[in-house]
Amino acid sequence: MNIFRLAGDMSHLFSILLLLLKIHTIKSCAGVSLKTQELYALVFATRYLDIFTGYISLYNTLMKMFFLWSSFTIVWYMRYHNVVRRSYDKDQDTFRHYFLILPCFILALLVHEKFTFLEVLWTFSLYLEAVAILPQLVLLQRTRNVDNLTGHYVFFLGAYRSFYILNWIYRYFTEQNYYKWITWISGLVQTALYADFFYYYVKSWRNSERLQLPA
């Protein structure tokens, strides 16, 4: 484990904690896309099936369990919690997330390293994670006035992806036979999706004003 990987994982953890904090203490999920959260739950559920088949480290297992638990908890809050579900912007969150799932699945059936059940699901989760943020970005753009917590949440998610790219570069030069084309390309696509958001986030931060995305 190198410093970039650790920083990436911590940003990811922190972004989820921010979101849970917002939902649990303020009892609001305004500006949060349920579509994106459902996609993440599906991403983790299909990727971390390997909890049962292989052991890497206690750190890996605990993180995987946390990501699984937190993603399903957030979806539960937004769908079923008496107070939280009322703050959900259902009419704005209209992205057809089903249209992302099917193409990712077909792509995983066609492009993978090995044609086995777990391997295809793992690949599917990589493709799906790359585009899972789209409903959230669309919702942010529609809401215009983004509240701070939601903005920070997306920022730390993007930071997580950026650190992972540094981690791959580092590992490529320090380890032998470290090639992961599928992971790299989907990771690059995913990070690129944040570029526009980052630009406006940094701009609003420098001018110390509220984050506003252009229509």
Binding site: R5, N60, F67, E113, E119, Y179
Partner: peptide, 10 residues
């Protein structure tokens, strides 16, 4: 056959 990379990342 090419060995698959160990999936040690999250």
């Amino acid at each position: 056959a090419k060995e698959l990379c160990k999936k040690d990342e999250l």
